[in-house]
Design a protein around this nucleic acid. Sequence first.
DNA 1: TTTACTGCAAATATTTTGCAATATC
DNA 2: GATATTGCAAAATATTTGCAGTAAA
Lengths: 160, 160
Amino acid sequence: MKATDNTGQNQSAHAIFTRYLHSKKMRKTPERFAILDRVAATDEHFSIEDFYDGIESKGFHVSRATVYNTIQLLVDCGLVRCHRFGNSSSKYEFVEAGTSHHHLICTKCGRIREVKDPDIAKVLKAKRYSTFNTSYFSLYVYGICSRCSRKARTQKANLK
Amino acid sequence: MKATDNTGQNQSAHAIFTRYLHSKKMRKTPERFAILDRVAATDEHFSIEDFYDGIESKGFHVSRATVYNTIQLLVDCGLVRCHRFGNSSSKYEFVEAGTSHHHLICTKCGRIREVKDPDIAKVLKAKRYSTFNTSYFSLYVYGICSRCSRKARTQKANLK
DNA sequence: TTTACTGCAAATATTTTGCAATATC
DNA sequence: GATATTGCAAAATATTTGCAGTAAA
């Protein structure tokens, strides 16, 4: 399981979620916390379907509707981010407090690479947009990945 | 109709698309250019459905499948960008050559605001990622828009 | 005890695909 | 003339919704 400390305040994801649910007068159900636990234990991007299959295989049953609902709550309270790459289904990731990364997306093969980029993160964090209360950023860099570049070079060479 | 000059080379969108189709040995059909023309004449984000209805109402008939295919070609050759905001359908926009903007997305009401931000654009353009051949960026800034902030303040005040 | 939440299944929305007819090259 | 592209409809995929039963507060 990953660490879930939050910006030095040492609040666990559980505590954040509990506080969020409380503030919205929503119920603290076992399904919601089971889903949070499993999300927090997942290092990769996952789709709802991935997640649904995964949690079933661990012997815990929740309906798809509850997965959709709960993941959305986690997005709303900032514990999870949603990405919609290419034309595939929504992908989610647990937010490791205090960290940040961007995504390099290959427009040829669709492969996603994560990059930590403190320089850009710093510039973005310093940015203020008038009358807009920023909470976070998503930066997507589109281009051709090394594998596809290599493939293209090889094909070109073979044509000669 | 908007100007379609490209990075000082004065290539029209038509010329770019023609060149692209030629390079891929694809056919230059009237449907493809009619779709490009209408895309280039549209200032806002549009969904495939919006676009389909719009082009029908102008008396030009193309099938949905052709709209999907052709818009994807335009994305592939860089004349159009695709955004997938929130959980709505894909939104597209014509790329005005040489310009750039980011998107502020309200996590409460879903409203999208475009902002030109030359500073950030400059920083991003200067960025190089090893073994990745960048073609463009998309930056999404999430937060609460002024309207929603105001609404929240008013509600709080009324509770007192 | 009240009613928010859950599971299930059906409905909706969006996008993709197969195939016969057509038009580009 | 060969075959890429089109239109149409059906299929596939992803997500939302309605409702009756269950459980948190």
